[in-house]
Design a binder for these strands. Structure first.
Length: 441
DNA sequence: AGTAGAATGAAGAGTGAG
DNA sequence: CTCACTCTTCATTCTACT
């Protein structure tokens, strides 16, 4: 009966949409495989077991601290095999609980038996693919994305575990998860490791060790002014009410202390550094544009850790189809990993982002870069011609627009069907077009 | 016309007391 | 279990300028 319920829950229409004939045996294979994945991820294994396995090789102190942090939440997901909780209105809407701590399948420093998973036949490459979006999307969004992307369980990672800034993201990919290796040197893991000079003016009552998510907008000048005014007109230490206000503003806007009572937003080059981009990667454009481009990009070390398995698999380099390229977080990650890109077909709507990628490419790469404006314009025949020209793609990578999913959007957080976020379906369409064209090579 | 800066909450999950 | 409270969030729209 559980299988029947599962069959009912898993709609088959995404498979039909893909233009793939999914007979019953394939569908059953898909179901059993995804059940294996879910079991390994968070179902039958308790959070404690998952956590313990993920952190077996961590230093004693850090491991103890992270497990201690997770203990409090364990009971929330443990104690039963249910992967979904009833929603408030009584419907059985599929929910996808986020792991806590949000460490993905494993983290850098982890050695030994890794989380293993068996992918459904439809999900395996070639090509390999890598999809990304915000972890805290509205209810039901990740369940739907997962359904379309071959029932592969998302890997939710908060980049806070790899660098000095939080970045809660979900990644769906069909890459191996064993024998990953991080970029070296390892990035700074705390604010003071990244920016030691800010210790001078940092108040003892501001106990942040990590930044929150780096976003597309930064604090306005009046925010800084109000903070300075409140602090300068009170004693030292300031009263609790003032501390609370200032701490909230600092957390909300990722402010740093650059002078006495003076908190200010991060500079674009500091965001480049935290996100793992080379210095001056976005330099030459307006500050507003740089903040927007950086706020929308990958955290390079996080993505590189996932992609690192490609290095030994493709010693002669790879060809990449890059959707929603932005400023090239995926490309920078591959380059830093020492993976040669023979060719990259990049699709990016923003002209400034295309210029940034082109500039970086011409300075660092010897392969071919083809830049396309709009995913909507990329049709099957053109995809087939690229597949023929380059002998297929080894990697299809991209994070589709989060505009209608992100919590910061006050006006149009409309979900996956929103004006911009619905471009996810073009990622899906193009990925399947590539698979189809490569099957006919 | 075009740009940079400033103003604009809610959704959702975690937490802890009762 | 409920319920009040805390915390975080790849942004859009409006306004005041050049």
């Amino acid at each position: 009966c559980e299988t029947w319920a599962f069959l009912k829950m898993k709609q088959t229409w995404p498979l039909r949409y893909a233009g793939v004939d999914a007979d019953l045996s394939v569908l059953v294979d898909s179901i059993s495989a995804s059940q294996v994945t879910e079991v390994c991820h968070s179902r039958n294994l308790s959070d404690h077991q998952v956590t313990a396995r993920c952190f077996d090789s961590f230093g004693g102190k850090k491991r103890a601290r992270l497990i201690e942090e997770s203990k409090k939440k364990r009971k929330r997901y443990g104690g039963g095999a249910q992967g979904k909780r009833p929603s408030s209105d009584g419907s059985d809407e599929e929910s996808m609980p986020l792991p806590n701590p949000m460490v993905g399948f494993n983290l850098p420093g982890y050695r030994g038996p890794s989380m293993t998973r068996v992918l459904p036949e439809l999900a395996t490459g070639p090509p390999y693919f890598y999809y990304e979006n915000v972890a805290r999307a509205p209810k039901g969004v990740w369940a739907k994305i997962t359904r379309f992307l071959f029932d592969i369980q998302p890997e939710f990672v908060d980049s806070l575990h790899l660098c000095a800034a939080a970045r809660k993201r979900g990644y769906i990919h069909n890459l191996p998860t064993e024998n990953r290796s991080p970029l070296l040197p390892l990035p700074p893991k705390t604010i003071f490791e990244a920016f030691p000079h800010y210790k001078k003016w940092w108040p003892s009552w501001d106990q942040r060790t990590h930044f929150n998510c780096l976003q597309t907008c930064t604090a306005s000048a009046p925010v800084t002014e109000r903070i300075q005014q409140k602090l300068s007109s009170s004693g030292n230490p300031p009263p609790q009410s003032v501390q609370k206000y200032v701490r909230h503003q600092c957390s909300k806007w990722n402010l740093v202390w650059v002078g006495k009572d003076k908190a200010a937003p991060l500079e674009p080059h500091e965001m480049e550094y935290l996100l793992g981009f080379p210095k001056d990667h976005t330099r030459g454009f307006g500050k507003t544009q740089r903040y927007k481009s950086l706020g929308n990009s990958f955290q390079v070390d996080t993505v590189a850790y996932h992609l690192s398995v490609l290095r030994d698999m493709f010693p002669n380099g790879i060809t990449v189809l890059s959707l929603f390229t932005g400023i090239g977080g995926g490309e920078v990650a591959l380059h830093k990993l020492g993976i040669h890109m023979r060719a990259v077909v990049s699709i990016e709507i923003c002209k400034a982002n295309r210029k940034i990628l082109r500039s970086w490419w011409d300075q660092t790469q010897t392969g071919t870069l083809i830049e396309i404006d709009d995913v909507k314009s990329l049709k099957d025949d053109e995809i087939a011609s690229y597949v023929h020209r380059f002998g297929g793609f080894d990697l299809v990578i991209g994070g589709s627009p989060c505009n209608n999913l992100a919590g910061s959007n006050r006006h149009h957080r409309d979900g996956l069907e929103g004006e911009h976020s619905s471009l996810f379906y073009d990622y899906f369409r193009i990925l399947n077009s590539v698979k189809s064209a490569m099957a006919n090579m």
